[in-house]
Amino acid sequence: MNNYDDDALDRALFALPLEEPPAGLRAAILTSTIYAPAPAFAPWEVAGLGAILALMVWLAINVFSDGGHLFQQSVQTIGFSLGHTLSDFSILWWVALGGATAIWMQFFTGTSSFAPVSRKAQSRPNR
């Protein structure tokens, strides 16, 4: 009989060193897993963009389906409204007044957002 009884064979098997993996295997694994670049969009973002795109296509089809008549009508309506608004002196006057009031309030009531105090300056310790 030989020296390789069951225990001896077990010991020999457990003592047998594992083959050395090729150099760079671990780095390759880590690169493809935890260090893999994150996808540009999350799945919900892709779904959202897809839905928006589909909606835009649907709108475009509806707008241009009658030879562009609806599109032209929409552009004309928007153009007419803008023209009417800008040519009406009283509307312009109220818009100017509102803007001036807003600027005045920001300058003279202490809630100015033009010169925000930097966080760095706030957190700097007093010497």
Binding site: L18, L25, R26, L30, T33
Partner: peptide, 17 residues
């Protein structure tokens, strides 16, 4: 993610083997 690298360290050799 570093925890996964520990798992890789533990088993990459055996998996390759």
């Amino acid at each position: 993610s570093e925890a996964f690298s520990t798992l890789v360290e533990r088993y990459d050799r055996a998996v390759y083997h």
